[in-house]
C-alpha cells in the first residue's frame, strides 16, 4: 500500500487515482500507523509553505514523516510537498521545512516573465537515478511561484529551463521530490510515478 499523506493541503484524489491506475493500492491517510505501515509514502501539497508546515506540526504529521523517512522506505514529495523536504523557505517570511534535504526555497528573481511558472515545460536529466532509468526527457506540468535550491548538487536529478535552470526532480537515498505534478503530466508523469512506486 502507498500512503498519500493528508494534512489538509490540496487535492489528493488525483494522486491517489494515479497510483491506483498503476496497479497499486493507495490510501489517503493522516494516521501514523497507516503511514509507518506503508510500502511507500507520497507527500502532496498545494498552497503556502508556512500553512503547510503549521498543519504538519499541529497534526503531529511532521514527526511521523521524519520517522517514516528514517525507516529508509521511499518517500516522494510532490509540488509543495517537494519544497517541504528542504531546510527552509522564504515564502511569506522565513519558515523551517522538514530538513530531509539541505537547501532553500526561494522566490523567482524579478524579471520580464510571468510568475507563477505555470504550464508544460521540458525536463533535463542532470544525473542518473533509478527514478529516471530508461526514460526520455519530455514535458511535464508545473505550477509554482517559488523554486528550490538544493545545497548538494548531487541531490539534483532533473531541471527545467524557465529563464534560469529550475529544480524539477530531487533525490537523496530514499527521499525524492518532484516540483511538477506527475499525476497531471501525461505519459511521462505516469512513467515517473511508476518508477517511484516500483521502488516501494
Amino acid at each position: 500500500m502507498i500512503a498519500i499523506i493528508d494534512y489538509g493541503m490540496g487535492n489528493l484524489h488525483s494522486v491517489s487515482k494515479a497510483v491506483e491506475r498503476l496497479g497499486r493500492q493507495a490510501l489517503v491517510t493522516s494516521q501514523e500507523a497507516d503511514i509507518m505501515d506503508a510500502a511507500g509514502a507520497i507527500l502532496p501539497g498545494v498552497g503556502a509553505f508556512g500553512d503547510a508546515m503549521d498543519n504538519l506540526r499541529e497534526s503531529g504529521l511532521r514527526d511521523t514523516v521524519l520517522r517514516y523517512a528514517a525507516t529508509g522506505k521511499p518517500l516522494l514529495g510532490i509540488c509543495l510537498g517537494m519544497q517541504l523536504l528542504f531546510t527552509e523557505s522564504e515564502e511569506h517570511g522565513l519558515h523551517q521545512g522538514l530538513g530531509l534535504l539541505p537547501g532553500r526555497v526561494v522566490r523567482f528573481p524579478q524579471g520580464d516573465y510571468k510568475v507563477p511558472h505555470m504550464g508544460w515545460n521540458r525536463l533535463k536529466f542532470e544525473r542518473p537515478s533509478p527514478l529516471l532509468d530508461g526514460l526520455d526527457e519530455g514535458h511535464v506540468y508545473f505550477v509554482h511561484s517559488y523554486r528550490a535550491l538544493p545545497e548538494n548538487p548531487g541531490d539534483l536529478l532533473a531541471t527545467t529551463d524557465y529563464h534560469q535552470p529550475v529544480t524539477a526532480i530531487v533525490g537523496r537515498s530514499n527521499v525524492y521530490g518532484m516540483q511538477f505534478h506527475p499525476e497531471k503530466s501525461g505519459e511521462l508523469g505516469m512513467q515517473l510515478l511508476e518508477r517511484f512506486v516500483g521502488m516501494c
Partner: peptide, 11 residues
C-alpha cells in the same frame, strides 16, 4: 468531475 479525475493525466 470525480470520474474524470480518475481517468485523465492532464489538468
Amino acid at each position: 468531475v470525480r470520474r474524470t479525475a480518475g481517468e485523465i493525466t492532464i489538468p
